[in-house]
Design a protein around this nucleic acid. Structure first.
Lengths: 214, 214
DNA sequence: CATGGTCAATTGTGATCACAAATACAAATG
DNA sequence: CATTTGTATTTGTGATCACAATTGACCATG
């Protein structure tokens, strides 16, 4: 048998989980879309057993909702729920950014600027999925410096729950400008300005919410 | 066939999940304790299939950790991880308490006082599991008034991760007094004192942490 | 006494099957 | 044409089995 590299091997249900998680978090599926065990199993050429584990896990994280009869679908969030999730993002991400600030050196800021350029390109192309993915990559790259894995995992769960809805919102948002608040975040990082950073992160996280209140 | 009440029926894996979740959250298992598919299956008289779903779900929520070879055990938290989880509790629970404050009427305060008495009894008996359960019930009862299900679910996940460790800490804590901060919380609720409430909740959540730093 | 090796038992994984419930669709009925 | 009924299909659930990898215990060797 071919020798497998330790970290190249993943159980089938774990590969499924990661693939589906990316689809949901980055808005590649729309809210309310159904997922069936046998449908996913056929697509990935596995049996239903690993699919069940992956879907159940996603449901446990709020990435999928389960109907009373046990069927899976991406959740269609109410406005109240969206407000709540945005508030959670604000709470946790402000803390993560604050913890990252003393560790944010120039190399990190440069990487963030590179990612920010990729976001601008996605905005120019009106590519919603790429926009969401690179935007979250911007935040994740910053927060990784906070050395707070539990907080990062928690906020990623929030991102996951908002994925399909963010995609649907992006359509009606009609973005034309690259992310303004990201520039404020970068400026505050360079200046070591903690209060400014907190305000900028909070504003960036809650900005999309205003479009919703109409 | 006997008619089943809608909410009395639960799938086997869901019953398992709830039972094991309670065991973990309330500290009935110690950190590092192993759980095997066949062991749990035999205990609950089911096959391994529903057990796998329940354990995987708990692992996804951080209530169990999975070794490199796939075995399940309750996590043994590092001090850094405990500090992080306590910080998450502080962030989210202060927000939940703040949101609950305007809705906290006299009937709620009375229920909280009743629960608080039960906590005192558990402390007097040195019953760690009952102490943890009633203490969390105190917090949950208050936060339910916040009408913020996503935040409550998030903080419950944090409680879940800390369960076994809280139990282990309780032993070396040697509590003799009923919860002092709970009285401060109740006083702030009665007075409608938001700043005081925030300080009291934060102090209550982070109090156990001081015992650890030795 | 410590260390390495061999073999049996344990453990998680994934496929398959039977089953019951829910759903979808078409035909029948008013 | 709208509503209901009946049937076929779809769907999630749980049990069982084979398999590979890990673990653990016992024994031999230094």
């Amino acid at each position: 048998m071919v020798e497998k590299l330790q970290d190249s091997y993943l159980a089938a249900h774990d590969q499924l989980y990661r693939s589906l998680r990316m689809r949901i978090m980055y808005g590649e599926v729309s809210p309310g879309q159904a997922m069936t065990l046998r449908g996913v199993a056929e697509e990935f050429s596995v049996s239903v057993t690993p699919v069940r584990e992956a879907l159940k896990r996603l449901a446990a994280e709020g990435a999928l909702s389960i109907s009373v009869s046990g069927r899976f679908q991406t959740p269609a969030l109410t406005n109240d729920r969206i407000e709540e999730l945005a508030a959670l993002r604000a709470l946790i991400e402000v803390e993560l950014a604050t913890r990252a600030l003393p560790r944010a050196h120039m190399a990190l800021v440069e990487r963030l600027q590179t990612i920010n350029n990729a976001i601008s390109v996605a905005v120019a192309k009106a590519d919603a999925v790429t926009y969401i993915r690179t935007n979250l990559e911007f935040h994740r790259t910053l927060y990784l410096r906070a050395q707070a894995p539990a907080m990062l995992a928690t906020v990623e769960t929030v991102w996951l729950q908002m994925g399909p809805t963010m995609r649907a919102l992006y359509g009606r948002l009609q973005r034309k400008d690259p992310p303004m608040h990201h520039r404020l975040i970068l400026a505050a990082l360079k200046a070591g300005d903690e209060p400014g950073l907190r305000v900028a992160v909070r504003a960036d996280v809650t900005q999309g919410l205003r479009m919703l209140a109409r």
